[in-house]
Each structure stands twice: as C-alpha cells, then as structure tokens.
Amino acid sequence: MIRRHLIAAAALATVAASGAAFAQSNEIRIAHIYSKTGPLEAYGKQTAVGLQMGLEYATGGTMMVNGKKIVLIEKDDQGKPDLGKSLLAAAYSDDKAALAIGPTSSGVALAMLPVAEEYKKVLIVEPAVADSITGDKWNKYIFRTGRNSSQDAISNAVAVDKAGVTLATLAQDNAFGRDGVKAFAGAIKKAKLVHEEYLPPATTDFTAGAQRLIDKLKGVPGRKIIWIVWAGAGNPFK
C-alpha cells in the first residue's frame, strides 16, 4: 500500500516544486518508460498493471491529485539503453512530463540517470535493481521504490553461507547480473566462491556455460551450489 501511495505523493510534490507555467496546468503528466516489448516484457507488463492500479487506488479512482488530472504516458524502451535515454529526454522536453517512472532493465536505468539530472526532474526507478542505480551512479533526482541487488544477494547468502559449502554463480553479462553477483560475493563470509560465469542476456542454450560450471565444481568435497541471477526469455533451469 505504501508503494501505491508513493507515486501519487511524488507527483504532488513535483507539482509543488515546479515553475509557474506548470502550476497553471490542469494536468500532472507522468511518463512510464518500460519494456513493453523485448526480453523483459513479462516484468514490464506487471509494472504497467501495478502502476495503473496504484494510481487508481491512491486517488480513490478519480485519477486526480490536488484538483489536477493525472495523465499517464506510456513509452516502450524495448530493453535498449539508448532508446530509453532518448525516450526519457522526449518525455521531459516534448511531453512536459512532471516526472518519470521506470525502467524495467538496469542497463536502461543507468542510461537514464544523467537525463534526469540534466532536466532536473524526478525519475522513480521501478523495478530495475542494480546497486549502482542508487549507488555510485546516483544523482539527487533519482528515487527507488523497489529492492536492489544487495538486498536480493544478502538474503540468499544467509541461506547458503556455511563452512564447507562451495559456490559458483551464473548470471547475465549486464548491469543486473554483474551487480547481483558482486553483491552476493560481498555477502559471503564462510562459504567459498570458486567461479563466476557470465553469459549474454539473450542466451537460450546454456550447455557451454553449464559445462564450465560443472568442471569448476568437479571433485570439490562437501556441498556444492550454483547460484543463478537471470531475468528474461532464456531459462537456465530448463
């Protein structure tokens, strides 16, 4: 419920902080930039439905805040960083969006961060998880409503970080995968991490990567675990 109210509250705060020209408008324009298509389409659709439901819930079905109508502008970044960056710039400049929400991909989010700073407008990141979004790449216009890679990693590490356990990781070779493994490795204190395997995000045949993981763990005594960080169409569990 808190996350549902956050977007409407952020929109209202943005209106209050905007200039006179926007204050005279009868609309609050919000850009939602996400993976409507592409490898993360399933996650994008969930976010779009949740955002619409959240706005309706937070406004009691009126889609109004402080007498102003909320206009939701949807844009498809297709999971492409350059496209997401240009769409955000267009949303702020051409569509006159008061703030933006998204994207689905961490790589797209990282490309968007400088745009929010350039236009001095809020970007609420949801659901991209890379630590660097609100870490070393962060600026004061960036807010996050979801979890990050470290939170995922620490909770998983608690379950497997035991003496005598040997670990290997499999992840996508992108910001999401690498930040996830970095956070996981940093949270491991007792177990031993012997190999990190990174594959292209669009991988569907995991045979070669799986063989490298098996070879690294072969002959190692004790419990052996492969920790996987993956999102999108490919399924390493098949």
Rank of each mutant, 00 (worst) to 15 (best):
A202C: 05
L167P: 03
A157S: 12
F206I: 12
R212W: 01
A168Y: 08
G186W: 14
Y198H: 02
I214H: 09
R212P: 04
W138P: 07
R223G: 03
Y141K: 03
P201Y: 01
T203Y: 03
D173P: 05
N174E: 10
G209D: 06
V194F: 04
G146K: 04
G135W: 07
I154Q: 11
L199K: 07
A130S: 14
A210G: 11
L167F: 05
V158A: 15
K137G: 05
G219L: 07
A185H: 14
D173K: 13
K189M: 05
R147Y: 11
W138D: 14
G180V: 03
A163N: 06
R144H: 05
L217M: 07
A191N: 12
I188F: 11
F143A: 15
A153I: 03
W138M: 11
N156Q: 12
V158C: 07
T134M: 06
A130K: 09
Q151F: 07
K162M: 01
Q172V: 01
A187M: 00
A183V: 11
G177D: 13
G186T: 14
D205Y: 02
I133S: 04
V220I: 14
I154L: 08
P200Q: 09
L213N: 02
A153M: 04
V158P: 04
F206A: 10
D179F: 03
N174F: 06
D131H: 09
A168D: 06
F143H: 10
L193N: 10
V165Q: 13
D152P: 00
A185G: 13
A191Y: 11
D173N: 15
K216P: 00
K224G: 01
D215N: 15
G164W: 10
K218T: 12
P201L: 03
K216E: 02
S132D: 12
A163D: 14
S155N: 10
T207F: 09
A168V: 04
G186N: 14
T207V: 05
D179R: 01
T166C: 07
A171S: 06
D131L: 06
R223E: 08
P200Y: 02
Y198D: 07
A185T: 15
L213W: 04
L167A: 12
D205H: 02
R223K: 15
R223N: 04
D161Q: 00
R147Q: 11
D152Q: 09
V220T: 12
G186H: 14
R212H: 12
I214E: 15
D152E: 08
V181G: 05
L193W: 10
P201A: 08
L193K: 11
S132P: 03
G177T: 12
A202P: 04
A210Q: 13
Q151E: 14
Y141Q: 09
T203S: 08
F176P: 10
A202S: 15
P200G: 01
T145I: 14
N139I: 02
A159V: 08
P200H: 01
S150C: 11
T169K: 08
V158T: 15
L199F: 04
T134P: 03
K162G: 06
G219R: 08
A171F: 12
V160S: 00
K162F: 13
T169F: 14
K218E: 13
K140Q: 13
K182W: 00
A208H: 06
E196D: 06
G186Q: 13
A153W: 01
G209C: 03
E196R: 11
V165F: 14
T204C: 00
P200R: 01
L217Y: 07
T134A: 05
A202F: 07
